[in-house]
Amino acid sequence: MKPLLVPVTVAVLLLAGCSSPKATYVEADSSRLVTTVEGINLQDFAQAADAMTASLIDNLINPGLLKSGVPNEPALLAISRILNNTGQQFDTDLLIKKIRVALLRTGKVQTSTTIAFGGVEDPLVADLGGPPKRNPDYTLSGKIIEDRTKAGNVRQSSYIFQLSLSSLNGIAVWEDERTIVKQGSRATVGF
């Protein structure tokens, strides 16, 4: 029986070392975030937004194909309809705001807060500034789609992010689609 004492002690020490407090702060870009199969997690939005921004930079901004209507000023973007076609309720700004911030930081794109699908984003500016003095050069529209399947004990959820950047003459000058697929044997992975 004595030989069991060492492995048991080691196991107890390991468990003690791996135990975590009941609540703790985690960095938003950490790989320790909770991941679930049954829903879109915060890191999924960040992943999709990052991939979409990189695609926009690679295919449109970096080759110098993004054109501004006003010389020496960044191109102006207006946010059009972003459709949530999933079974979940969430604010599409979880995706779009990240893309807007990232595009603004490129120094090549600005977003209108007074011209947007479904109403102005900043009503005070719209009241104080009067009618917009500049039309957007591009509009951003998109859709988020969900697909679920199950085989035996394995559940799989796919979230498809589709975005299009259109010029004002109705031509999609950039489009991309990113799919995030998650699998798990239970509703929640990791716990």
Partner: peptide
């Protein structure tokens, strides 16, 4: 720092060679 910063999940099959690419967010 950017709000799009995140840990990217990835997997490789045994013996697989893959290219991981990343684009700078700003010049």
């Amino acid at each position: 720092e950017l709000p799009t910063a995140h840990s990217r999940p990835r997997s490789l099959e045994g013996g697989e060679i893959a290219a991981i690419t990343a684009t700078a967010p700003t010049p």
